[in-house]
């Protein structure tokens, strides 16, 4: 497998602020790769380093094997879908999409044809003559996508592209992006702070925190086998159990992660005190206190639901307690 993007010890510091700190990263060709993390974790800066809007203060970036050092954004064969879409307000939709081809010197008829084709692909055929200001948020997002893809980039960079859309549209676009990536077969690098989005779309996920990657792997790995308390908490809000408690159960002195849906009410096990109960629809979330450890569990529909203040006993299968050796 060829590597599409490779970071070797890449840093981007702004004075004392380490936006990206000695990062190593390898993204394979044709991969749907998600960069996940809270705001300020360095994921967007990493994306901008690939696009060429930022310059690394140290380290080396390779794009399809070639060193990117000193190569301006307009000479990189990667294209970006911006968070605010950045559609050119003075051009109509067709000219927006055809912009890259116009710069590349394609004749008008040819580039307009290609632009209309790209608009068809994102289900906006016939919208070419409108101005961006006449489109809805979801439509603008598709235009931004078409504008990037019409240039046939080797990698597509997406900076929180679904952030401004409402929930329903977001879910629809997630599926469309996934199938688009599969049919085009090019590398997608997707930045998001929404763990659900990252897990449902990506082949691999890198979790960022404080300018570093704390874990990288397949969505299932990240979800079920977090390596640090940060990942456990940020991705899917696992319960983080302290080392002393984990040592008593497993003999290993390390943090443990326990998924809320893995815990059930039982006859025997650990006693706990129910603090609050919230009905979520498909399940019910129960927050409790187990000795001094806060614990959140999800009870499926049909289970016996305790009330706040009840004393309960909880248990889980030993396999479900994931011990985080690396902290």
């Amino acid at each position: 497998m060829t590597s599409a993007i490779r970071f070797s010890g890449v840093s981007r510091h702004y004075g004392d602020v380490k936006a990206v700190d000695t990062l190593d990263l390898d993204i394979a060709e044709g991969e749907f790769f998600a960069m996940l993390g809270p705001s300020g974790s360095g994921k967007t800066t990493s994306l901008r380093l690939i696009a060429g809007f930022e310059r690394p203060t140290a380290g080396e970036i390779r794009i399809f094997g070639q060193i990117a050092q000193g190569i301006p954004p307009y000479k990189r064969n990667v294209n970006t879908v911006f968070q605010d879409y950045a559609l050119f307000p003075h051009l109509n939709v067709r000219d927006n999409v055809a912009y890259g081809l116009m710069i590349a010197g394609q004749p008008k008829a040819q580039r307009h044809k290609a632009a209309d084709g790209a608009l068809e692909m994102v289900a906006l055929g016939g919208y070419g003559d409108r101005k961006p200001s006449e489109l809805s948020g979801g439509q603008r997002q598709r235009v931004a996508l078409a504008r990037a893809l019409v240039n046939q980039p080797k990698a597509l960079l997406l900076d929180e592209p679904l952030g401004a859309l409402d929930l329903k549209l977001r879910e629809q676009m997630q599926e469309e992006l996934k199938s688009l990536q599969r049919s085009l077969g090019i590398t997608f690098i997707f930045v998001t702070h929404d763990q659900g989005e990252a897990l449902s779309m990506a082949d691999r996920v890198a979790v960022f925190n404080k300018g570093r990657i704390v874990q990288i792997g397949a969505p299932e790995d990240i979800y079920y086998r977090p390596e640090t308390p940060f990942v456990a908490d940020f991705v899917g809000s696992s319960n983080v159990l302290p080392p002393e408690f984990v040592a008593k159960l497993t003999g290993k002195h390390a943090y443990g992660a326990l998924r809320p849906e893995s815990v059930f009410l039982a006859e025997q096990g650990h006693s706990a005190m129910v603090r609050s109960v919230s009905f979520l629809g498909a399940a019910t979330r129960v927050s409790m206190q187990m000795d001094k450890i806060p614990l959140t569990i999800l009870l499926p529909k049909g289970a016996v639901i305790p009330k706040a203040g009840d004393a309960v006993t909880v248990a889980w299968s030993a396999d479900d307690l994931h011990v985080m050796d690396r902290t």
Binding site: F53, P72, F82, D84, A86, L87, P89, I103, A148
Partner: peptide, 25 residues
């Protein structure tokens, strides 16, 4: 900001960006 970056991302150098994006705006 992002309009200039978008133009450069799509292959336009500084002068092309000025001519096609900044000046009309």
């Amino acid at each position: 900001g992002s309009l200039v970056e978008a133009s450069m991302d799509l292959g336009a150098n500084s002068f092309q960006t000025f001519r096609y994006i900044i000046l009309p705006n």
